[in-house]
Design a protein around this nucleic acid. Structure first.
Lengths: 342, 342
DNA sequence: TGGGATAATGTAAACGGTTTCAGTGTTTTC
DNA sequence: GAAAACACTGAAACCGTTTACATTATCCCA
């Protein structure tokens, strides 16, 4: 039996009664799922407005088995990167009349052994980077939940569409720029977490650039950065204070926020950017052109990534064809933190 | 009758059947809402795992009349400001085992004549600034939807708790700083939209500071800025190109992003910051210390705002007492864009 | 040993919608 | 003018849970 005396909210039955028709007719009128005669329509409309009726989302979901919601799984929220991403996503979600459910999710520390968003929740899922394990992805895939991966490729076998940006070539060229234009030879590489694919490809680009220019790869110069300002700061400071550390003349920070942390640490130990050490970022945040010095970085169309990923997700939901891999172009933005003067 | 042959997803009935018990027992076991004997519990647990059963959220919501979700209504997403805000919110929402629904909502242009998030959707609502009209607020309030207002005060009469930051005094002191320390006399004030309360109070602070220092208020110096970089840029550029415009020596931009736009425009017309014109921001974005020149601004604890608002919302949902107004302190951060040299 | 309390479970009625199917009139069509 | 098509509408099943109430078995104690 029901619990509360009554939820006090007006239901479709109230509307039906007051309009003198059946609930079926009201439902049809609201959803325009069948014609309703003029006079009846008007009566319903009137009652609808008078009662300020709003359909109960859950009831509707239960009946239609459509959630009218899509989920976004993030591994963190605290990065300038997510502003543009979210913007692109929300825009399209709204346009399609869906709701957006946002959750952070870090596989390593999760009480429940399953993610907060799934088929019972949402009609489709946007999965950012490593917010879900391969196994979890496989599970959701088996349940036929439409998904799109962002900044991460599909696990072997299950062919989940993904959209990401070109990392390797851009990094290669930027590193080469540091070497060739500025004669840098000891270039620190800040990496993300092990599972971070962006980080992986950038590292490949970095290594290949070193090799192509006759520089040796030095594990000592690989520092954790996590694409976060604070982590990068600490990491850099720690490195700089090592008693017998190698001299460095450049840092690839992997992210513009991280670049700020790095510059902070550098400054504090009396090193000048870019005279003593070049610093370059990634992502081209909206303020990077106004940093001191203006940050040389790589522009990634994050807003576009969000838009396209969402579009692909909706295509999937509506059974339209979807590109299995979308790789958006990146572009090197030369400013002054690398040592260029223009 | 039902539509699809079957949703293929496993329901509580499947679990019940396979465990040889009734659905009621399974439900009780899952929700720990009543004791279940040891052997039965074990059988259920086993089936649960084997079938990977996940309760259908909508069904549960319908039955319990709890949505286990809270909504966040924003008027825009494209501002660095929302990163920290969202972070504070999401953190607490997750902790409480709720979901977060995010929607943008601009009353002026909305197809439906009602907001996307409401009692049928969420158990509570975080309403940012002017994303809802007074009338809409009143409507939701009448339906007893728990709400907390962020950066906005409650409309007359309905006493909806709000959390915001101190605007007036901080602005007053910062403007006074420009006047007294740097001898500025023609200070542009960039305002937000008319309904923006932050903007309102800052303007009061601005006017009072002028008056307290014998400067006359000049409507010509009120420029639209909208707390957005691009708007601010255009606005400033437009002003600077007016044929017979007044000389200016300072700009209060209302937002750090906007400050970037202003500096951009200033630079382009050959004005130096801070030598020719002081520029000050608001909010103290994470990167403002590293701009060129480092931005003098006002620190607002945005992350805290998000946290506290959410906490208050949950208190309301659980019928705990809630402060009706929370005003968080702000702090002037003197850097160099005002003309200070340290 | 009988009877009331207690514990564990089952039955079935909600929750608020959608949709199938059937049933009315009203038109067409031949 | 009867049959067939059409346009609306209503009754009721169903979506997958929760939970009030009923039922049964077990226990405790006078």
């Amino acid at each position: 039996m029901a619990r509360k005396p009554n939820t006090s909210s007006i239901t479709i039955r109230d509307v039906a009664r007051q309009a003198g028709v059946s609930v079926a007719t009201v439902s049809r009128y609201i959803n325009e799922t069948a014609r309703v005669s003029e006079p009846v329509g008007e009566r319903i409309e009137e009652v609808l407005n008078r009662l300020q009726y709003r359909p109960h989302a859950a009831a509707r979901q239960l009946a239609t088995q459509k959630m009218l919601a899509i989920g976004l799984l993030l591994n963190s929220i605290y990065n300038d990167f997510f502003g543009p991403l979210l913007y692109g996503i929300e825009e399209l979600v709204q346009q399609n009349g869906y709701n957006l459910l946002v959750a952070t999710s870090r596989p390593e520390r999760r009480k429940e052994n399953y993610p907060a968003l799934g088929p019972h929740n949402v009609d489709g899922l946007l999965v950012f980077a490593d917010s879900l394990t391969d196994k979890e992805l496989a599970g959701l895939h088996a349940q036929k939940l439409p998904m799109v991966l962002i900044h991460r490729s599909s696990p072997e076998g299950l062919d989940i569409p993904c959209v990401t940006v070109e990392n390797k070539a851009a990094t290669f060229h930027l590193i080469e720029h540091l070497i060739k234009q500025h004669g840098r030879k000891s270039i620190v590489f800040m990496r993300g977490k092990v599972d971070q694919e962006d980080s992986y490809w950038r590292e490949i680009g970095y290594r290949e650039a070193l090799e192509a220019n006759g520089l040796e790869f030095d594990p000592e110069l690989m520092l954790p950065g996590d694409f976060q300002r604070d982590v990068a700061y600490l990491s850099m400071r720690d490195f700089l204070s090592r008693p017998k550390r190698r001299q460095i003349d450049a840092v690839f920070t992997g992210d513009d926020s991280a670049a700020i942390g790095v510059m902070e640490a550098l400054e504090q130990s009396g090193l000048r950017v870019p005279q003593d050490v070049s610093v370059v970022g990634f992502n081209d945040s909206r303020h990077s052109a106004f940093l001191n010095p203006p940050l040389t970085t790589i522009n990634a169309p994050t807003h576009e990534v969000g838009r396209i990923a969402t579009k692909n997700l909706f295509n999937q939901i509506t059974n339209h064809p979807v590109d299995s891999v979308t790789l958006l172009p990146t572009e090197i933005i030369i400013r002054q933190s690398c040592g260029c003067t223009s």
